[in-house]
Simulated scan of single mutants.
Amino acid sequence: MSTPTTAQGPRVLKGHGTENDFVVLPDPDGSVWPEDRLDGALVRRLCDRQGGLGADGVLRVVPSALVPDAPGVLGDALGDCTWFMDHRNADGSYAEMCGNGIRLYLHVLLAEGLLTREEATAGVLVGTRGGPRRVGLGETGYRVDMGPARPTGRSEAHLGGATFPGLGVSMGNPHLACLTDVAVDSLDLTGTPRVDPALFPEGVNVEFVNVLGAEEGPAGTTAHVRLRVVERGVGETRSCGTGACAAAWAALEAGGRSTGTVVVDVPGGRLTVEVDERTTVLSGPAVVVSSGTLSPEWLG
C-alpha cells in the first residue's frame, strides 16, 4: 500500500477519464484530508489552472466508514462499499456522482495497491453521494453500472440568444440533454446556459447533443451521438460520464427506443453507454498522468 504522505508533503495524483481531469488525494486511513482540512477554499485552489494543479474536480480516496455522510447516502449498502469516492466540484461544492471520475477512482485503487486486479475484474461496489455504484475492469477500459436514467420532465436551455429544448434526466445528479441540429462544435460554451430554476433549484449539467446516427452506430451499436457539456460548478468540460448517459438515454427516447447501445463522442474521446430496462452501463478509459507531493510552501 502506498503512503499518502511523505517528508515533503501529502501525496497527490493527477489523472483523467476522456480528458475530464481530476486531482486525486490518496487518504486510505482518513487522516490526511479530514473534512475540516479539505474545505471548499482548498478544493478551489487545487483545481485552479493557473495557481494550482488544475482540474475539473477533486477525488479523495477514502474508506466509506470514515466519511461522515456515507451512512446517509449508502444506507444498507454501507458495509458493501469498502471505498468511498469523496468527489468535489472545481468550485468546492460536493458532487453526487461522476462516471469519468469513478473509472479513474478504480484505476487509482489498482495503481495504489488498494485493490487487486482479480477484484477489479470481478467488480466492486464504490460508495458515492449518488449511492453505491458497481465498477469493474473491462476489455477496453472500465465499466460502471450508473443506475437507471430517470426522466424529470421537459425544459429548455437558453444560450447566446438561442433556445434549446431538452429532456431532464437524473443520473443521481441532474441533467438537461438538449438534442439539436446546430453543430455542437460551433457553440460558444464559455458562459453558463440559463435554465428554469424551479425545475433545477440546485443547478444542472447541460448537454448539447448532435445525433450522428439514429438507426445504427459504430461496430453495430444502436446509435451514435456527439456531445458537449457545461457542468454545474465547473463550466464546460472535455467529457462527462453521467452526461453521456443522459444524452444516450435522450437520443434513444427520441428514436422511440428504451434500450440500446450508444457511442458517445466527447471532446476528450469516446465513451459507450449501454441502456437496458434496469440500468445504464458506461464504458471508457482512465489514466493517471502524474504523481507527486504538495509542497508545504504551496499549502501555506
Rank of each mutant, 00 (worst) to 15 (best):
A157V: 05
S170F: 00
P165A: 12
A162I: 04
L167R: 12
N173I: 01
L104G: 05
A122T: 12
P148Y: 09
E139C: 13
A111E: 15
Y142V: 08
A111H: 14
L159S: 12
I102K: 01
L125G: 03
T163A: 15
P151T: 11
G113I: 11
N173P: 10
Y105T: 02
T128V: 01
G136T: 01
G113V: 05
M146Q: 00
G113S: 05
V144S: 07
G136K: 13
R154T: 14
L109A: 06
A162F: 05
G113K: 01
C178N: 14
A149I: 04
V126W: 03
A162C: 11
N173T: 08
E139N: 15
L109R: 04
A122C: 01
E156A: 15
S155N: 12
G130K: 07
S155G: 12
R143S: 14
P151Y: 00
H175Q: 11
H107R: 15
T180G: 13
G168C: 11
D145L: 05
G160R: 14
P132A: 08
G131Q: 01
L109I: 09
G166L: 00
L159G: 09
A177M: 11
H107A: 14
G172I: 13
L125Q: 04
R134G: 07
R117I: 03
H158E: 10
G168R: 13
H175T: 09
V108F: 03
G127A: 00
E139R: 15
L114N: 07
R129T: 12
P151K: 07
G166W: 08
P148Q: 01
G168Q: 08
R143Q: 14
L176P: 06
V135H: 02
G138W: 07
R154F: 06
P174V: 04
G153H: 03
R154W: 10
M146N: 06
P174E: 13
V135S: 10
V126N: 09
G153F: 02
A122P: 06
R103M: 08
G123S: 08
G160S: 11
L114H: 11
M171P: 00
L114K: 02
A162M: 12
L110N: 06
A177C: 13
R133S: 11
G153R: 01
S170T: 15
E112V: 01
T121N: 08
A111S: 13
G131C: 10
E112W: 09
L114E: 02
G161I: 05
A149R: 03
P165C: 08
V124D: 09
Y142F: 15
R117K: 02
L125I: 06
L115R: 09
N173H: 07
A111Q: 13
T116C: 01
L125N: 04
A111F: 11
G141W: 06
I102A: 02
F164V: 12
G147T: 09
E156I: 08
F164N: 02
H175P: 03
G160A: 06
L179W: 15
I102E: 10
L125A: 07
